[in-house]
Amino acid sequence: MRRLWSAAALMLILFTVLVAACGKKPPVARPTPPPPPPSATASRPPAPPEPVSEPTIVPAEPVQDDAISSASLDDLNRTSPLKPVFYEYDSSELSPDGQRILDANASVLKQYATWAITIEGHCDERGTAEYNLALGERRAVTARAYLISLGISADRLRTVSYGKEFPFDPGREEAAFSRNRRAHFVITAK
């Protein structure tokens, strides 16, 4: 019943819009015969709204959804929807920026509730290889704990530390170091 009413209301709005639009037309196109079109629209109001409202909106979302869920794990991880979190030197504390990124990652993980991920801890090259293994683990664990606090199931989140074994940027300046101090998210199952 309510739907019927709202449909009627929609039609009424459309009708008035059309009338208004047509009302503006006359000054521009005066030489052509104006009287027949207004009378024609007035006689059949239900025709135009039907094709306009639905078909454009509905396909848009499913197509986007498929791009992510149909991508292979390799492609998905190459342009990952899960953004890395960066850390300060010799620290595993989450910055406000890091928390924002994890908030966004958490909502992606909620949207794709079947995904399982591995959180990799990475370090820059300034520390020693041995200690960095433990530091990287600590970074991964901090990110994991934060995601769990946002309601992501612990079963979906594994951690691994690579220490300084796999730098993302081989450079030896602070810009490279700061890119390498990260928790990196890898989708391992979907």
Binding site: L73, D74, N77, R78, E165, F166, V186, T188
Partner: peptide, 9 residues
């Protein structure tokens, strides 16, 4: 493997 193109040691 699935992750990334990384060198082995």
């Amino acid at each position: 493997g699935t992750v990334e193109n990384r060198g082995v040691k």
